[in-house]
Amino acid sequence: MTDGRPSPTNDAQIVVSGLTKRYRNVLAVNNLSFTVEPGRVTGFLGPNGAGKTTTLRMLLNLVTPTAGGATIGGQRYPELADPLRHVGAVLEASSAHKGRTGINHLRVICAAAGLPRERADQALELVGLTPAAKRKFKGYSLGMKQRLGIAAAMLGDPRVLILDEPANGLDPEGIRWMRGFLKGLATEGRTVLVSSHLLSEMQLLADDVVIIAAGQLVRQGPVEQVIGSMAQGVRVRVRTPQADALTAALKDGPATVDSDGQGALLIGGVDAPTVGRAALAAGVELHELTTERPDLERVFLELTAGKAGIR
Protein backbone atom coordinates (compact mmCIF):
# COMPACT_ATOMS: atom_id res chain seq x y z
CA MET A 1 0.00 0.00 0.00
CA THR A 2 1.04 3.62 -0.33
CA ASP A 3 1.93 5.91 2.51
CA GLY A 4 -1.45 7.59 2.18
CA ARG A 5 -0.35 10.72 0.35
CA PRO A 6 -1.85 11.03 -3.09
CA SER A 7 0.91 10.96 -5.65
CA PRO A 8 0.63 13.62 -8.35
CA THR A 9 1.32 11.21 -11.19
CA ASN A 10 -1.32 8.80 -10.00
CA ASP A 11 -4.44 9.74 -11.92
CA ALA A 12 -6.29 6.49 -11.43
CA GLN A 13 -6.39 6.21 -7.66
CA ILE A 14 -9.74 6.25 -5.90
CA VAL A 15 -9.80 8.02 -2.56
CA VAL A 16 -12.89 7.84 -0.37
CA SER A 17 -12.72 10.06 2.69
CA GLY A 18 -15.22 10.46 5.47
CA LEU A 19 -18.07 9.43 3.19
CA THR A 20 -21.41 9.49 5.00
CA LYS A 21 -24.98 9.01 3.83
CA ARG A 22 -28.01 9.30 6.06
CA TYR A 23 -31.47 8.26 4.84
CA ARG A 24 -34.02 9.56 7.33
CA ASN A 25 -33.09 7.52 10.40
CA VAL A 26 -30.71 5.07 8.79
CA LEU A 27 -27.00 5.76 8.58
CA ALA A 28 -26.36 3.82 5.37
CA VAL A 29 -22.69 4.81 5.15
CA ASN A 30 -20.87 6.10 8.19
CA ASN A 31 -17.62 8.07 7.90
CA LEU A 32 -16.13 5.62 5.43
CA SER A 33 -12.55 6.11 4.20
CA PHE A 34 -10.40 3.89 1.99
CA THR A 35 -8.19 4.01 -1.08
CA VAL A 36 -8.14 1.89 -4.21
CA GLU A 37 -4.88 1.51 -6.13
CA PRO A 38 -4.31 1.21 -9.88
CA GLY A 39 -2.94 -2.01 -11.34
CA ARG A 40 -4.84 -4.15 -8.87
CA VAL A 41 -8.28 -5.68 -8.55
CA THR A 42 -9.87 -4.49 -5.34
CA GLY A 43 -12.77 -6.44 -3.91
CA PHE A 44 -15.37 -4.35 -2.11
CA LEU A 45 -17.04 -6.69 0.32
CA GLY A 46 -19.80 -6.45 2.84
CA PRO A 47 -22.99 -8.19 3.93
CA ASN A 48 -26.26 -7.22 2.26
CA GLY A 49 -27.24 -3.74 3.35
CA ALA A 50 -23.69 -2.82 4.36
CA GLY A 51 -23.75 0.25 2.11
CA LYS A 52 -21.68 -1.01 -0.84
CA THR A 53 -24.02 0.17 -3.57
CA THR A 54 -24.67 3.50 -1.86
CA THR A 55 -20.91 4.06 -1.56
CA LEU A 56 -20.31 3.30 -5.24
CA ARG A 57 -23.20 5.58 -6.25
CA MET A 58 -21.81 8.42 -4.12
CA LEU A 59 -18.41 7.87 -5.73
CA LEU A 60 -20.10 8.39 -9.11
CA ASN A 61 -22.16 11.42 -8.09
CA LEU A 62 -25.45 9.57 -8.54
CA VAL A 63 -26.24 9.87 -4.84
CA THR A 64 -25.32 13.02 -2.91
CA PRO A 65 -23.31 12.30 0.28
CA THR A 66 -24.55 13.73 3.57
CA ALA A 67 -20.90 14.38 4.43
CA GLY A 68 -17.44 13.58 3.13
CA GLY A 69 -16.50 12.92 -0.47
CA ALA A 70 -14.68 10.77 -2.94
CA THR A 71 -12.21 11.48 -5.72
CA ILE A 72 -10.99 9.59 -8.74
CA GLY A 73 -7.49 10.65 -9.76
CA GLY A 74 -7.85 13.62 -7.42
CA GLN A 75 -11.09 14.91 -8.96
CA ARG A 76 -14.69 14.51 -7.94
CA TYR A 77 -16.68 12.65 -10.58
CA PRO A 78 -18.65 15.64 -11.91
CA GLU A 79 -15.38 17.59 -12.25
CA LEU A 80 -13.95 15.09 -14.72
CA ALA A 81 -13.80 16.66 -18.18
CA ASP A 82 -14.64 13.47 -20.06
CA PRO A 83 -16.02 11.16 -17.36
CA LEU A 84 -16.44 8.09 -19.58
CA ARG A 85 -12.82 8.35 -20.76
CA HIS A 86 -11.71 8.19 -17.11
CA VAL A 87 -14.20 5.94 -15.41
CA GLY A 88 -16.35 3.04 -16.57
CA ALA A 89 -19.05 1.76 -14.27
CA VAL A 90 -21.39 -1.22 -14.27
CA LEU A 91 -24.01 -0.62 -11.63
CA GLU A 92 -26.99 -2.76 -12.54
CA ALA A 93 -27.49 -5.36 -15.20
CA SER A 94 -30.95 -4.24 -16.24
CA SER A 95 -30.20 -0.65 -17.15
CA ALA A 96 -31.11 -0.36 -20.80
CA HIS A 97 -34.38 0.41 -22.55
CA LYS A 98 -36.06 -2.95 -23.13
CA GLY A 99 -37.12 -2.05 -26.64
CA ARG A 100 -33.71 -0.81 -27.77
CA THR A 101 -31.08 -3.01 -29.40
CA GLY A 102 -27.76 -3.58 -27.67
CA ILE A 103 -25.78 -1.70 -30.30
CA ASN A 104 -28.15 1.27 -30.19
CA HIS A 105 -27.91 1.38 -26.41
CA LEU A 106 -24.17 1.83 -26.80
CA ARG A 107 -24.52 4.34 -29.64
CA VAL A 108 -26.75 6.54 -27.49
CA ILE A 109 -24.01 6.62 -24.85
CA CYS A 110 -21.32 7.30 -27.46
CA ALA A 111 -23.33 10.25 -28.77
CA ALA A 112 -23.77 11.72 -25.29
CA ALA A 113 -20.09 11.29 -24.40
CA GLY A 114 -18.83 12.54 -27.75
CA LEU A 115 -17.16 9.20 -28.50
CA PRO A 116 -16.88 7.94 -32.07
CA ARG A 117 -19.73 5.68 -33.13
CA GLU A 118 -17.34 2.82 -33.95
CA ARG A 119 -16.52 2.47 -30.26
CA ALA A 120 -19.96 0.86 -29.82
CA ASP A 121 -19.06 -1.95 -32.24
CA GLN A 122 -15.59 -2.37 -30.73
CA ALA A 123 -16.96 -2.58 -27.18
CA LEU A 124 -19.52 -5.21 -28.20
CA GLU A 125 -16.74 -7.20 -29.85
CA LEU A 126 -14.66 -6.90 -26.69
CA VAL A 127 -17.33 -8.61 -24.56
CA GLY A 128 -18.25 -11.14 -27.24
CA LEU A 129 -21.73 -9.77 -27.84
CA THR A 130 -21.44 -8.92 -31.54
CA PRO A 131 -23.84 -11.69 -32.65
CA ALA A 132 -26.57 -10.17 -30.44
CA ALA A 133 -25.88 -6.56 -31.47
CA LYS A 134 -29.19 -6.05 -33.23
CA ARG A 135 -31.31 -7.98 -30.76
CA LYS A 136 -33.52 -6.00 -28.41
CA PHE A 137 -32.44 -5.74 -24.78
CA LYS A 138 -35.55 -7.53 -23.51
CA GLY A 139 -34.38 -10.66 -25.35
CA TYR A 140 -31.01 -10.71 -23.57
CA SER A 141 -30.19 -13.28 -20.91
CA LEU A 142 -28.90 -12.01 -17.57
CA GLY A 143 -25.36 -12.91 -18.62
CA MET A 144 -25.73 -10.96 -21.87
CA LYS A 145 -27.08 -7.97 -19.95
CA GLN A 146 -24.01 -8.05 -17.70
CA ARG A 147 -21.76 -8.17 -20.76
CA LEU A 148 -23.62 -5.25 -22.33
CA GLY A 149 -23.12 -3.32 -19.09
CA ILE A 150 -19.38 -4.03 -19.27
CA ALA A 151 -19.31 -3.01 -22.94
CA ALA A 152 -20.95 0.30 -21.96
CA ALA A 153 -18.32 0.79 -19.25
CA MET A 154 -15.49 0.11 -21.72
CA LEU A 155 -16.70 2.58 -24.39
CA GLY A 156 -14.33 5.33 -23.30
CA ASP A 157 -11.39 2.97 -22.70
CA PRO A 158 -11.29 4.17 -19.06
CA ARG A 159 -8.43 3.78 -16.61
CA VAL A 160 -10.81 3.15 -13.73
CA LEU A 161 -13.45 0.42 -13.68
CA ILE A 162 -16.15 0.25 -11.02
CA LEU A 163 -18.46 -2.76 -10.97
CA ASP A 164 -21.33 -3.53 -8.61
CA GLU A 165 -21.94 -7.29 -8.28
CA PRO A 166 -20.88 -8.07 -11.87
CA ALA A 167 -20.96 -11.81 -11.32
CA ASN A 168 -24.67 -11.81 -10.44
CA GLY A 169 -26.55 -14.11 -12.75
CA LEU A 170 -23.50 -15.29 -14.66
CA ASP A 171 -23.02 -18.99 -15.33
CA PRO A 172 -19.69 -20.63 -14.39
CA GLU A 173 -18.29 -19.96 -17.87
CA GLY A 174 -19.40 -16.32 -17.63
CA ILE A 175 -17.81 -15.94 -14.20
CA ARG A 176 -14.53 -17.37 -15.47
CA TRP A 177 -14.62 -15.03 -18.44
CA MET A 178 -15.29 -12.07 -16.14
CA ARG A 179 -12.41 -13.05 -13.85
CA GLY A 180 -9.95 -13.22 -16.74
CA PHE A 181 -11.28 -9.98 -18.20
CA LEU A 182 -10.98 -7.98 -14.96
CA LYS A 183 -7.57 -9.42 -14.09
CA GLY A 184 -6.41 -8.49 -17.58
CA LEU A 185 -7.58 -4.90 -17.09
CA ALA A 186 -5.70 -4.64 -13.80
CA THR A 187 -2.57 -6.07 -15.43
CA GLU A 188 -2.77 -3.26 -17.98
CA GLY A 189 -2.44 -0.86 -15.05
CA ARG A 190 -6.10 0.08 -14.65
CA THR A 191 -7.90 0.46 -11.36
CA VAL A 192 -10.58 -2.17 -10.87
CA LEU A 193 -13.03 -1.89 -7.97
CA VAL A 194 -15.52 -4.76 -7.75
CA SER A 195 -18.23 -5.17 -5.16
CA SER A 196 -19.43 -8.66 -4.45
CA HIS A 197 -20.65 -11.04 -1.84
CA LEU A 198 -19.33 -14.10 -3.66
CA LEU A 199 -16.32 -14.61 -1.40
CA SER A 200 -14.80 -17.66 -3.04
CA GLU A 201 -14.88 -15.80 -6.36
CA MET A 202 -13.29 -12.75 -4.72
CA GLN A 203 -10.47 -14.84 -3.29
CA LEU A 204 -9.64 -15.92 -6.86
CA LEU A 205 -10.06 -12.47 -8.35
CA ALA A 206 -9.01 -9.77 -5.91
CA ASP A 207 -5.54 -8.52 -5.01
CA ASP A 208 -6.83 -6.17 -2.32
CA VAL A 209 -10.03 -6.13 -0.32
CA VAL A 210 -12.03 -3.44 1.39
CA ILE A 211 -14.48 -4.96 3.85
CA ILE A 212 -17.34 -2.90 5.23
CA ALA A 213 -20.22 -3.72 7.53
CA ALA A 214 -23.04 -1.54 8.77
CA GLY A 215 -21.70 1.32 6.68
CA GLN A 216 -18.28 1.32 8.33
CA LEU A 217 -14.84 0.12 7.29
CA VAL A 218 -13.92 -3.18 8.91
CA ARG A 219 -10.64 -4.00 7.20
CA GLN A 220 -8.64 -2.95 4.16
CA GLY A 221 -5.52 -4.43 2.62
CA PRO A 222 -4.07 -7.09 0.33
CA VAL A 223 -6.08 -10.32 0.49
CA GLU A 224 -3.20 -12.38 1.93
CA GLN A 225 -2.52 -9.77 4.59
CA VAL A 226 -6.15 -9.54 5.65
CA ILE A 227 -6.41 -13.31 5.90
CA GLY A 228 -3.04 -13.49 7.67
CA SER A 229 -4.16 -10.90 10.19
CA MET A 230 -6.49 -13.53 11.53
CA ALA A 231 -3.45 -15.60 12.69
CA GLN A 232 -5.40 -17.34 15.39
CA GLY A 233 -7.43 -18.77 12.57
CA VAL A 234 -4.53 -20.89 11.25
CA ARG A 235 -5.07 -24.43 12.42
CA VAL A 236 -3.44 -27.80 11.96
CA ARG A 237 -5.58 -30.74 10.97
CA VAL A 238 -4.31 -34.06 12.29
CA ARG A 239 -5.63 -37.54 11.74
CA THR A 240 -4.32 -40.16 14.16
CA PRO A 241 -5.52 -43.43 15.74
CA GLN A 242 -4.01 -42.19 19.04
CA ALA A 243 -5.89 -38.93 19.57
CA ASP A 244 -5.74 -39.06 23.34
CA ALA A 245 -1.97 -39.57 23.38
CA LEU A 246 -1.42 -36.64 21.04
CA THR A 247 -3.73 -34.41 23.08
CA ALA A 248 -1.77 -35.30 26.21
CA ALA A 249 1.56 -34.59 24.46
CA LEU A 250 0.39 -31.10 23.48
CA LYS A 251 -1.36 -30.10 26.66
CA ASP A 252 1.64 -28.31 28.20
CA GLY A 253 2.08 -25.94 25.23
CA PRO A 254 -0.05 -23.08 23.84
CA ALA A 255 -1.99 -25.53 21.69
CA THR A 256 -5.77 -25.86 21.71
CA VAL A 257 -7.18 -29.18 20.54
CA ASP A 258 -10.65 -29.69 19.14
CA SER A 259 -12.31 -32.49 17.27
CA ASP A 260 -13.64 -31.66 13.80
CA GLY A 261 -16.43 -34.18 14.41
CA GLN A 262 -15.23 -36.38 11.57
CA GLY A 263 -12.44 -38.24 13.31
CA ALA A 264 -9.73 -35.60 12.90
CA LEU A 265 -8.28 -33.11 15.38
CA LEU A 266 -8.05 -29.38 14.77
CA ILE A 267 -5.13 -27.92 16.65
CA GLY A 268 -4.75 -24.18 17.05
CA GLY A 269 -2.04 -21.99 18.50
CA VAL A 270 0.90 -23.99 17.14
CA ASP A 271 2.22 -24.68 13.65
CA ALA A 272 2.42 -28.00 11.83
CA PRO A 273 6.14 -28.68 12.53
CA THR A 274 5.50 -28.26 16.28
CA VAL A 275 2.67 -30.78 16.16
CA GLY A 276 4.78 -33.20 14.10
CA ARG A 277 7.69 -32.92 16.51
CA ALA A 278 5.43 -33.51 19.52
CA ALA A 279 3.90 -36.55 17.85
CA LEU A 280 7.32 -37.98 17.01
CA ALA A 281 8.54 -37.47 20.58
CA ALA A 282 5.45 -39.15 21.99
CA GLY A 283 5.59 -41.98 19.46
CA VAL A 284 2.14 -41.10 18.07
CA GLU A 285 1.27 -42.40 14.62
CA LEU A 286 0.01 -39.67 12.19
CA HIS A 287 -2.09 -40.26 9.07
CA GLU A 288 -2.59 -36.61 8.14
CA LEU A 289 -0.87 -33.39 9.06
CA THR A 290 -2.06 -30.29 7.18
CA THR A 291 -2.06 -26.59 7.84
CA GLU A 292 -5.53 -25.11 7.38
CA ARG A 293 -5.43 -21.44 6.45
CA PRO A 294 -8.64 -19.53 6.93
CA ASP A 295 -10.11 -18.54 3.60
CA LEU A 296 -11.64 -15.17 2.76
CA GLU A 297 -15.08 -16.46 3.60
CA ARG A 298 -14.15 -17.41 7.16
CA VAL A 299 -12.29 -14.15 7.73
CA PHE A 300 -15.21 -12.19 6.30
CA LEU A 301 -17.78 -13.94 8.47
CA GLU A 302 -15.65 -13.42 11.58
CA LEU A 303 -15.01 -9.75 10.80
CA THR A 304 -18.61 -8.93 10.03
CA ALA A 305 -20.22 -11.15 12.65
CA GLY A 306 -23.19 -9.45 14.25
CA LYS A 307 -22.96 -6.44 11.91
CA ALA A 308 -24.85 -7.90 8.99
CA GLY A 309 -28.43 -7.69 8.03
CA ILE A 310 -31.30 -5.30 8.13
CA ARG A 311 -30.84 -1.93 9.73
Binding site: L60, N61, L62, Y77, P78, L80, P83, L84, V87, A89, L91, E92, S94, S95, A96, H97, K98, I109, A112, A113, A152
Partner: peptide, 18 residues
Protein backbone atom coordinates in the same frame (compact mmCIF):
# COMPACT_ATOMS: atom_id res chain seq x y z
CA UNK B 1 -39.88 8.87 -17.40
CA UNK B 2 -38.34 6.21 -19.65
CA UNK B 3 -35.00 6.97 -18.01
CA UNK B 4 -36.39 6.01 -14.65
CA UNK B 5 -38.69 3.22 -15.85
CA UNK B 6 -35.86 1.44 -17.66
CA UNK B 7 -33.22 2.59 -15.13
CA UNK B 8 -31.20 4.29 -17.85
CA UNK B 9 -30.93 7.45 -15.75
CA UNK B 10 -27.82 5.91 -14.20
CA UNK B 11 -26.15 5.49 -17.60
CA UNK B 12 -27.27 8.93 -18.73
CA UNK B 13 -25.93 10.71 -15.65
CA UNK B 14 -22.69 8.73 -15.72
CA UNK B 15 -22.04 9.96 -19.25
CA UNK B 16 -23.11 13.49 -18.29
CA UNK B 17 -22.83 14.24 -14.57
CA UNK B 18 -23.95 17.83 -15.23
Amino acid sequence: TNEFFHQTATTTFLATPR
